Simulated assay, not measured.
Amino acid sequence: MYQEFLQYELKDPQMDVNLLSQYQLVINIADTGIVFFINDAASNKCLAIEKYKFSSPATTENLTMNLQNIWASHPYLNAGYWKKVVLLFSNLKFSYVPKEYIKGDINPEIFSRLNFKLDKGESLAHMRLDELSTYCYYAVNNELMQWFGEFYPSMITKTAHTTAAFLYGLLTYDKKASHIHVNVSDALITIANIKEGRLMYVNSFPFTSPDDVLYLCTLVADELKLDTKDIKLNVWGDITTDSDYFTKLKPYFLQVAPGKRPEFLKFSFNFDELEDQFHFDLFNAAKLYL
């Protein structure tokens, strides 16, 4: 049944299902579908990538059922002996708070109420990004967390928000104030700006077309008071360089470049069909909990 939702799968022939206890499994979960990748923790080699798209957008109530349909018949996802499992939640329910505002007597939910409301069946999680001196608060699906806990009982499943993995990857990138970093997924675009190690801006927006992406990039540039003629726009995501997304951006942003893969991760020729800007957040999540 898992193949019903499968969009593509890439695999290194050296991957050995008998060695899953040495591998990390990182899963990006959105209401439109999931993407996962597997890497060898010792060699930092990418071993597999698979992308699935749900037949219709999932809700809080049926998200777990969608994943169960994939896991039930998958040849190795249902193995319970991974070295580590990391879940990335891709949604609009997140907020970033500078660490100086975090105090023991403050209810953490205060930091999220202005940005989002938790649905029934969701809880508030958080993680710390020390390099940016900030905390990320985000919503997680309770039923999904319980199911993963029961499915992989021998380990603690780690969680993060996709924006945190994206920002973590940017820390090794050029952090000039005149750079805007963009990550485009199936239904959300994340835009970030980092200046001298400080997070100046990060937000995600829903979109449906290349025109939306152009409008949102221009909007953020205006908000940051940056001239589009001087900005370098680094673009990652599931979009190819010959797509309308890049075509729309180039007349307005004179310096548009596809983002690069993380340098720490090794890829065999089996992944050459994926352009370098694909799955930047997913790949960098492998380093979040080392």
Rank of each mutant, 00 (worst) to 15 (best):
M1K: 12
Y2W: 13
E4V: 13
L6Y: 09
E9A: 14
K11A: 09
Q14K: 14
D16L: 05
Y23V: 13
Y23F: 10
Y23P: 07
Q24K: 07
I27P: 00
N28C: 00
I29E: 06
I29P: 01
D31M: 07
T32Q: 10
T32N: 00
F36T: 10
F37I: 04
N39Y: 03
N39D: 12
N39A: 07
K45Y: 12
C46F: 02
L47P: 06
E50A: 15
S56C: 11
P57A: 08
T60K: 06
N62M: 03
L63Y: 00
T64K: 12
N66F: 02
L67H: 05
I70F: 03
W82H: 06
W82D: 05
K84N: 08
V85T: 07
L87E: 07
L88P: 04
V97D: 07
P98Y: 12
E100Y: 12
I106D: 02
I106K: 01
P108H: 02
F111W: 08
L114K: 13
F116V: 11
L118N: 03
G121N: 01
E122G: 01
E122L: 10
E122K: 07
L124I: 08
M127S: 14
S133P: 04
T134V: 11
Y135R: 10
Y135S: 13
C136M: 07
Y137H: 05
A139L: 05
N142W: 05
L144K: 08
Q146L: 15
G149V: 02
E150Y: 00
P153S: 07
S154G: 13
S154N: 14
T157L: 14
K158G: 03
K158I: 12
A160W: 02
H161S: 04
L167N: 08
T172L: 10
H179N: 14
H181G: 02
T190S: 14
I191V: 14
A192N: 08
N193A: 06
G197V: 09
G197I: 09
R198K: 14
R198D: 11
L199W: 00
L199D: 09
Y201W: 04
V202D: 06
V202H: 03
N203D: 08
S204Q: 11
D212Y: 03
L216S: 01
V220L: 03
K225Y: 03
L226C: 09
I231W: 01
N234F: 12
V235Q: 01
W236A: 04
G237E: 06
G237S: 05
T241I: 09
D244L: 13
T247H: 12
K248D: 05
K250G: 02
P251W: 08
P251Y: 10
L254T: 13
L254C: 05
Q255R: 12
P258S: 12
G259W: 02
G259N: 06
R261A: 12
K266Q: 15
L274H: 06
D276P: 00
Q277E: 11
F280D: 00
D281W: 01
F283G: 06
F283N: 01
K287I: 14
L290Y: 11
